[in-house]
Write a protein that binds this DNA or RNA. Structure first.
Length: 520
DNA sequence: GATGCCGGGTT
DNA sequence: AACCCGGCATC
């Protein structure tokens, strides 16, 4: 059941996939704390917390969430989480196992979370009467003001019906309210007790339900507009609430690109022909690697346009691209499950705090090893434009070694490219070796290898082709069967990195084999 | 001489 | 299969 899945996942943020490996794993692994994707969160888990989740009109489904509260060590969710997050950002990787998720709960990493979780918790019915009462009291005003009486559903203790006719309305206050509710809920000691009174006072429950509904409604009336497919979501039996949450989360930090690619993003998030398919929840996204910019879009064109217009100062009206943008974004795999989980867990920590995104994820702050890689693959992916403020915390960048990769998307990058950024007064380190991003979801549909010359000067592509043709002819004429191929023109790892940085070579070069990174 | 990498050996 | 290196062709 989708709802179950969504709810379940939304309460296990700990699974957020943070295994980012930009460029070379050698540096990346050392810098980036890799959080256990599926590991338990012992520090914050005191046993399953039963919830009942039911789709619209459906029967309740009990979901045992490993984490919805932060009681664990008796710490206050908000403060402790932020502290842990800072620690994690600073590189402390020792205790990622126990608090990995919470570390990423910092508002600085996931700004704008206060509104989203509400959607994720929409159909959640807690068995905690006390909390329900608190919720009712604290949110009653908001409910009465924002939820039309007609939309109020008759109370059913077994499930929470989702209003079918949600209307957009002012949502800021409701989001805050909902976040507050979630905070209260997450901190409630009774939440930890599955044996708590199973029945919930009707008024409280209703208010709770309405709060969530209102929040959900507000979440759908934010910065984007629903297309036809989207509008069906709230009324479908199993609305992809997690998707909504994700979308909200991703869009909040998006800024100027939100409106222009709204349709794409909604398609991306909602037009999944097989919504129940959760085996492969990884989505290929494109993350801007510009310093202090963590924009994540779902399409390469979108991220290119973003980089071109925002960072490179190019004419936004022109679609012309010289390819330079390719080197300022990277392809990442976003674990949608993790996103959902992250939303659910992060919001309660600081529901009203929408802090600016961190300067850059820890893995990228080290400019000497920054992996400013251009990656362009999966172009046939459903057009989408999404953005999130904490992609590094929830995204998974997979990089396979060039020599070992099979049909990867590879973008050779040379140090010379660093100068490209300085043309615009921007200093960017390009010492990192090129990387190959290979999507985890099946075969690569498109392989694009771009050498520096080719990439930078599309106009000369024909010239390059001519040269290559010539080289082939020359080779054919002078080569004999069994003879070695002529030496490639591209700089190899040895030349790019030098002997002193031999560890940065591709494996093939290290083994004195044909370079797999700078292929000809 | 530096570089690229084939071919073959070792683990 | 991963790793390493002698040796040769190429620049």
């Amino acid at each position: 059941m989708d709802s179950k899945f969504i709810l379940e996942k939304s309460t296990t943020v700990g699974g957020a996939d943070f295994n980012c490996r930009p460029g070379r794993s050698v540096h990346c692994d050392a810098r980036v704390p890799i959080l256990e994707r599926n590991g338990p969160m012992p520090a914050y888990t005191n046993g399953p917390v039963p919830y009942k989740c039911s789709p619209d009109g459906g029967s309740p489904v009990e979901v045992k969430s490993p984490r919805t509260c932060f009681k664990g060590n008796g710490i206050s969710p908000g403060g402790r989480i932020s502290l842990d997050m800072e620690k994690n950002v600073l590189g402390d990787q020792k205790d990622t196992g126990s608090s990995g998720i919470l570390k990423r709960a910092s508002p600085t990493c996931c700004p704008g979370m206060n509104g989203q979780l509400t959607a994720g918790f929409m159909q959640l019915e807690t068995k905690n009467p006390v909390k329900q009462g608190e919720l009712a009291l604290s949110l009653k005003a908001a409910q009465g003001r924002n939820v039309p009486q007609a939309e109020r559903q008759p109370f059913l203790s077994s499930h929470i019906p989702v209003p079918r006719n949600r209307r957009p309305s002012g949502h800021a206050d409701k989001e805050v309210m909902a976040a507050t509710v979630l905070t209260s809920l997450s901190t409630s000691p009774l939440v930890l007790c599955p044996s708590a009174a199973p029945t919930v006072p009707e008024p409280a429950n209703r208010v709770w339900k309405e709060v969530l509904s209102a929040s959900y409604s507000s979440s759908t009336s934010g910065n984007w507009s629903w297309d036809a497919s989207d509008q069906s979501v709230p009324s479908t039996p199993s609305p992809p609430l997690s998707n909504d949450t994700n979308k909200n989360f991703l869009l909040l930090s998006q800024g100027d690109d939100v409106s222009e690619d709204v349709t794409e993003s909604t398609h991306f998030m909602f037009e999944d022909p097989i919504p129940r398919k959760r085996k492969n929840s990884m989505k290929v996204m494109f993350k801007c690697l510009w310093k202090n910019c963590e924009k994540v879009l779902s399409t390469s064109s979108g991220i290119q346009r973003h980089i071109r217009t925002v960072h490179l100062g190019r004419n936004s009206d022109s679609d012309y691209s010289d390819g330079e943008e390719d080197f300022y974004y990277s392809e990442i795999e976003v674990n949608m499950d993790s996103l959902t989980e992250g939303l659910s867990n992060l919001a309660p920590t600081s529901p009203t705090t929408v802090g600016p995104p961190p300067a850059f994820p820890p893995l990228l702050t080290d400019t000497s090893h920054s992996e400013n890689i251009g990656v362009n693959g999966f172009q046939n992916h459903a057009p989408t434009l999404l953005s999130q403020s904490a992609p590094s915390a929830l995204c998974h960048i997979r990089t396979d070694h060039a020599y070992q990769a099979t049909a990867p998307v590879s973008i050779p990058v040379c140090p010379e490219l660093a100068e490209l950024g300085s043309d615009n007064g921007i200093s960017v380190s390009w010492q990192s070796p090129p990387v190959i991003f290979k999507g985890a979801s099946g075969p690569v549909n498109q392989v694009r290898t771009v050498s520096i010359g080719e990439k930078r000067q599309p106009a000369t592509s024909t010239h390059t082709t001519v040269n290559k043709s010539h080289a082939l002819i020359t080779q054919a004429t002078k080569s004999t069967p069994g003879s070695r191929k002529p030496r490639g023109e591209a700089k190899k790892c040895r030349k790019v990195y030098g002997m002193e940085k031999r560890d940065m070579w591709c494996t093939a070069c290290r083994w004195k084999k044909a370079c797999q990174r700078f292929t000809d």
